[in-house]
């Protein structure tokens, strides 16, 4: 079917059949590779969910504990506390840094260097961040095993994702609109708060969700920064260890008892389901974005009225400069 619409069917080269066979073989191998990957994906999900769903009960979900006794509540809450802490540290630098890269850098080399640093920060191995967190945050800065140390270690990893995805969604905004805003006398603050942030909200949300999904599944950064707490929730921001789900998985499967294995499977199931949901929302950000845009539409109307009917007085001096920066 594929070949008949590509070759004139009356041309019969000598090598025609072998080329056709190669194409058929490539097609078969392509399908096989895809099928193989999907089969492994299904196998992973099936084993984890089978193991987790078979062992789950309310008692495990509602009590504090470790892999030898009790439940996972400290892990479930601790994971989200740590991720929230990481987001707290990474969201503001990520979004505002992206605003700077989008609107203020006039030198391409400087912005290129900043982007490069952001990119290579994603490739620092997680255990290196963990060791750094232990040596510097836990010991040198005397934070102890704590939410703040663990959150900073996660934040280091979340920051580049948030910054890059935010910047990308700023770049997707029509540049004419931004130039028009500058031409009408808007300043950087106006453009950032009334055009960039509202219009890129879906993209920023997608970046946040992606980075949260990555952070929730991390272990190596947390082992020596958040340590582990089987007694319950951390009592304060510093000097109080935190439990998290990935520890239950790692420690549970290395214990001999069936109970520990069950906890590992349940934790893995919770992790894998939350991560999948987060990733799919962030991947299908355009669908989510349609919803968000409906929410932000009234705001857009306000912006239009402000810019079209009465341009703000304060930014007039910045007009020519702003225009220059937005011309490529």
């Amino acid at each position: 079917m594929i070949n008949s619409d590509m070759h004139g069917s009356e041309i019969k080269w000598k090598r025609h059949s072998s080329r056709k066979a190669k194409d058929a073989a490539a097609r078969l191998l392509g399908y096989l590779a895809l099928g193989f990957m999907l089969a492994i994906l299904i196998s992973i999900f099936a084993y984890i969910i089978k193991g987790g769903a078979g062992a789950i009960n309310w008692n495990i979900l509602s009590t504090y504990g470790n892999t030898s006794e009790g439940g996972l509540l400290n892990g479930i809450i601790g994971t989200w506390e740590l991720v929230g802490m990481g987001l707290l540290f990474s969201l503001i630098p990520g979004v505002f840094g992206a605003i700077y890269l989008t609107q203020a850098v006039s030198n391409r080399h400087i912005s290129g260097a900043m982007r490069l640093f952001t990119d290579i920060l994603t490739s620092v191995p997680s255990i290196v961040i963990g060791l750094f967190g232990y040596l510097v945050l836990v010991i040198r800065f005397n934070l102890g095993y704590s939410l703040v140390a663990g959150g900073l270690a996660l934040g280091v990893m979340m920051l580049p994702y948030i910054m890059r995805i935010t910047e990308m969604s700023f770049r997707n905004i029509q540049s004419e609109q931004i130039m028009n805003a500058y031409a009408l006398g808007a300043d950087h603050v106006n453009v950032a708060t009334r055009i960039l942030l509202p219009q890129a909200s879906a993209g920023i949300l997608s970046g946040i969700l992606l980075s949260v999904s990555i952070a929730a599944g991390e272990t190596a950064q947390l082992l020596y920064t958040a340590s582990f707490n089987s007694a319950g929730l951390p009592s304060g921001l510093t000097h109080s260890p935190v439990g998290y789900l990935t520890y239950f998985v790692w420690n549970g499967i290395n214990q001999p008892s069936a109970y520990a294995h069950n906890l590992a499977f349940i934790s893995a199931m919770i992790l894998i389901i939350s991560v999948t949901v987060l990733i799919f929302i962030s991947k299908y950000e355009d669908v989510v974005g349609r919803f968000l845009r409906r929410v932000f539409a009234p705001l857009g109307a306000v912006i239009n009225r402000v810019f079209i009917e009465s341009p703000p007085e304060q930014g007039v001096k910045g007009k020519s400069k702003g225009e220059k920066e937005w011309k490529k």
Partner: peptide, 30 residues
């Protein structure tokens, strides 16, 4: 530019330096 904008630009500039500073800090301490 007024102070508000100057402050905003300076703040966003600082924020955009964070990844580089973090990376250099990690390398230096390790």
């Amino acid at each position: 530019m007024d102070t508000k904008n100057k402050f905003f630009n300076f703040f966003t500039f600082l924020m955009s330096l964070v990844p580089a500073l973090v990376l250099i800090t990690i390398l230096a301490f390790v």
